[in-house]
Design a protein around this nucleic acid. Structure first.
Ligand SMILES: [Mn+2]
Ligand SMILES: [Mn+2]
Ligand SMILES: [Zn+2]
Ligand SMILES: [Zn+2]
Lengths: 138, 138
DNA sequence: AAGTAGGTGCAACAGAAGTGCAATTATTGA
DNA sequence: TCAATAATTGCACTTCTGTTGCACCTACTT
């Protein structure tokens, strides 16, 4: 708890009760979460607060946003020393068509992509869809 | 014109006036288009018609849908012998942060991605963002 | 020409994202 | 300590994209 407070403070944001709870929840879940997911977990709090909390987290490099192709944005806690606010977040994401969960595969970095003449890459997004380990293990 | 009719018929859909015009428009544009883009180009036609036309096109392998990370779906004409209805569409897409256009880089196939034990890939989406050739050439 | 299947237009709805403003809570410093 | 100030939260409302139901129209079939 104290640890989470320090993490938030170290990233320059004030560790309010709400923020600590949301951070804790996201760490425990281990999968990427949509605003709606968090909304359902914190029914006593307002959507806008959760929305702005995620935005603040993102702006301060606490979470990164993931576009997994489902149409709704997902968010996941950044790794310890990730600096995705500065550079791009290089790991790939996996979306399971069976359980509908999206996870960060932080160990799996995105390979270098070469582009035609004149194109300059700033960011790369790689999402693999299929069946996750939990679902294929049945 | 006759050519477009034949293309549509060969894919099993009726070549109505509307469909021919939309197909023609998408071929000429050469970039991936959102429903709204097409809507603005065909103000006399209804959103729903355009929406369902794109859906029909997609279901019959005439266009493929692209999620470029902007939050709105884009559509682009499929290559001559692409069979993205059956397998996944393997080329990568590029979104320019300057002109906001998304293009298919059909020559650039997505490299093989290896996944952790238990994960099974069915589809891969790779989007590179940055500055396109037209915009960097200035 | 009548019947039928497919295509189109209108209206309405759902969900996600985003904004303005007032109320509340936390921090500052006199 | 306590008023002033700044940050955070909650409520209401809007916009945008995607989607569906239903009625009407149009084009093929026999
Ligand atoms: Mn991630
Ligand atoms: Mn493409
Ligand atoms: Zn799964
Ligand atoms: Zn450009």
């Amino acid at each position: 708890m104290r640890e989470i407070e320090e993490t938030l403070e170290s990233k320059g944001i004030r560790p309010t009760a709400m923020r600590i709870l949301i951070y804790k929840y996201m760490v425990e879940k281990e999968i990427a979460l949509a605003l709606t997911d968090i909304e359902n977990a914190f029914i006593k709090s307002d959507r806008t607060t959760l929305y702005r909390t995620l935005k603040t987290f993102e702006e301060n490099g606490i979470v990164h946003q993931i576009d997994d192709g489902t149409g709704t944005a997902k968010y996941a806690i950044c790794e310890e020393h990730c600096n995705c606010e500065l550079e791009q977040d290089l790991h790939l994401h996996f979306h399971c068509n069976s359980c509908d969960e999206t996870v960060c595969l932080t160990e799996h970095k995105i390979p270098h992509i070469n582009l035609p003449e004149g194109y300059k890459a700033k960011d790369v997004n790689l999402v693999v869809k299929g069946i996750c380990d939990k679902c294929s293990g049945q």
